[in-house]
Amino acid sequence: MKLKTLIFYILLAISLLFFIYPVYFAFNLAFMPRAAIFQLPPNYIFQPTLDNFVKVINSWEFSKYLMNSTIVSILSVTLSLIVGLPATYALVRYDIPKKGTILSMILGIRFLPITSVAIPFYIMFVSLGLYDTMFGLLLTYILLNLPFIVWLMRGYIMDVPTELEESYEVDGLSKTQVFLRITLPLVYKGLLATVLFCFIFTWNEFGIALLLTGTNARTLPVQSLQFVASLGLDWGALCAAAVLIASPMIVFGLLIRRYLIRGLSLGAVR
């Protein structure tokens, strides 16, 4: 019994080490002085330095792409909410013909090979002058976020008892008021989690941004390829860039730990 528990913990620890190591590795190298990087066995203890970060932030227009990523993520999530939330509510609460088909089609977007679907966007955007603009990117990202918003919020709204809403309606609130003043406050945690989830998803998106942006509207993940090209063997700076791009997402992810799995499984896990 004791021995078995011990073995379980050892196996678990080894596995967890595998999952955490690349993250640890990136953080480690990001703070490592240049001279200590190309040494084996690896350096675990050293005088940390911010040189790598300074180097990344001061060059390659890091702040511009940071702004791009932030703006595109915030705006696309906001817009998706504005479009998706009322629709979700209607799809959950009201009798809408072909509800199931509508829902499956919205969900279907999640399964499309998006880099292939985005090719005509490229053709269209080039001819419309939307190529390499934030606006164009925004339009496509709304498309990506909608399935998540509809499917996740659907679950949260379904958890609110109909009777509760009806009793407020009987008491004189309009349907819109019931939604805004009763239902939304009840699902705000789920809403917040969904927003953060979509934010992470949008921020991390790579394929579409690669296809639809040039130097102007480019986001951080795409720019990271540029870092590889220009920093090449400067692993410290490369890792500093990685840490700068990924750590906000790590923080958000840990914040919504429980909801993240629900989101990734499209609401299958409660």
Partner: peptide, 11 residues
């Protein structure tokens, strides 16, 4: 276990 899931894949 959350870490790999939220890590920017490109990165």
């Amino acid at each position: 276990l959350i870490l790999p899931l939220v890590m920017t894949p490109a990165v």
